[in-house]
Every structure is written in C-alpha cells, then in structure tokens.
C-alpha cells in the first residue's frame, strides 16, 4: 500500500447525499477477478450515457477533474452493500481521499483498508471546500495527514480527526496485514503452543 503523508491534488465536488456503493460501482461489474481496473466503471451510471459515450455534464468527465485525487460529497457516502469493489473503483480512478459530512460504516472502514483516507467534516466546511473545488485548475487542496489538516487553495487550514491507529497505518503505508505481521512473533508463539496442546489438529492435504 502506498504511504499517505501529504496529498496535494484536484478536488472534485459531487454534491449529492447517499451516494451508494451501487452508484460508485454497479453490481454487474462484480464478476471481475481483479481489484484493479475498476476505475473505468466508477460512477458508471452518472459518467456514461446509455450508448456508452461519456456524459460531458458529469464532473469527472471535465478537464481538470479527470485527474481528481480528492472527492467531496454530501451525507452518508458509501451506503448500500459491504462490497469492497467500491473503494477499489475509487482508488483505481485515482481518488486517495474522500471528504463528506458523514459516511456509511462499512465503507468508511473499507476505505482505510484500501489506503483511502475518509475525512468527516461538518456540512458547512464541506460546502466551503466544495466551493473551493469548483475553481477548476485552481481547485488544488492539500491533505496533510501528519499534521491532520486540510489546506485550502487560499492557504487557510482546517483541522480534522482520525483514529490514531488508522492514521499510523496510512502514514507508514501499512495495510492491516502489514500491521498484523508486526506481531508475527506472537503468532508463532501461539502456533507452537497449539501444536503442543492440540496435537490432534489435522492438516488438509489432498493427493
């Protein structure tokens, strides 16, 4: 997982509530066997017309926003199913940070698990950031995770909260697996004890 320290990039405004996982990535793309490559299908129903052509009115189809790294929305982002295809699609599109007044629980956790930083900020602040993000090429926002601040294009800073463990994992570029493997000694000790106390535990081998 890439480290997340300071992210500066274009922020795209998506002023909608309840953007569900089906909107982020429709169910019909779930028969994939890859976690990468879903970016082209992100926001499929809003991004493309029925004939498959791009919808020029959709923000992510417009010049600077094609390269957005940050997404700003209204309440309850990521509601619906628990599918991890939703953060995978965002990440593959290039989004590393999502900002909203509130998030669906599982989506919020799934973001962290996949290296995306979700930031919850009060509605008024989200609206201000959304106004900033409408400045096209100038819509550059900086997310400084070390200092826990969002830096607006005019240089003013907004502090945000993040779970300390989650913050550390992102800063160090550790996924949950990397973090658990730091406890590998404990796992080995546990396994040794089990081999001793429960010798009957069978292994699965198929000839």
């Amino acid at each position: 997982m890439d480290k997340f320290t300071v992210l500066t990039g274009i922020a795209a405004p998506l002023p909608q509530e309840n953007i569900d996982t089906d909107k982020i990535i429709p169910a019909r793309f779930l028969k994939t066997t890859k976690r990468s490559g879903l970016g082209v299908h992100a926001f499929d129903s809003m991004r493309y017309n029925a004939d498959g052509s791009e919808n020029p009115d959709f923000i992510l189809n417009q010049a600077p926003y094609r390269n957005s790294r940050i997404l700003i929305t209204h309440d309850n982002l990521g509601c619906g199913s628990s599918r991890e295809h939703a953060p995978w699609a965002l990440l593959d599109f290039g989004i590393r940070c999502v900002i909203a007044p509130s998030f669906a629980d599982i989506f919020f956790n799934n973001c962290f698990k996949n290296g995306i930083l979700p930031i919850a900020l009060p509605r008024e602040i989200c609206d201000e950031l959304m106004a900033d993000s409408r400045m096209g090429e100038n819509a550059r926002i900086t997310i400084d995770l070390q200092r826990q601040v969002v830096v607006r294009p005019d240089g003013t800073e907004i502090a945000f909260e993040v779970d300390p463990l989650r913050r550390r994992l992102l800063l160090e570029g550790l996924d949950d697996i990397g973090q658990t493997l730091q406890h590998e000694d404990a796992i080995e000790t546990f396994e040794a004890r089990r081999r001793r106390d429960e010798p009957w535990m069978p292994s699965i081998t198929i000839d």
């Binding site: 890859k34 463990l165 406890h183 546990f190 089990r194």
Partner: peptide, 28 residues
C-alpha cells in the same frame, strides 16, 4: 493471539474455506 490497545484482538483462524467469487482479488 494478542489483544491490541483498543478492544481489538488478533484472533487465530483454524480453517479458511475459499470459493471462486470472493478469493480472486485476495490472491491478486
């Protein structure tokens, strides 16, 4: 295996069953 500072535990898993739908991205 170990208790982490919040109430989270590292829990040992004895059996892991996999099938074709939710495993490919994990292998990837």
């Amino acid at each position: 295996v170990e208790r982490l500072p919040d109430s989270t535990a590292i829990l040992y898993i004895d059996r892991h069953l996999i099938h074709e739908v939710t495993s490919p991205q994990a292998f990837e």
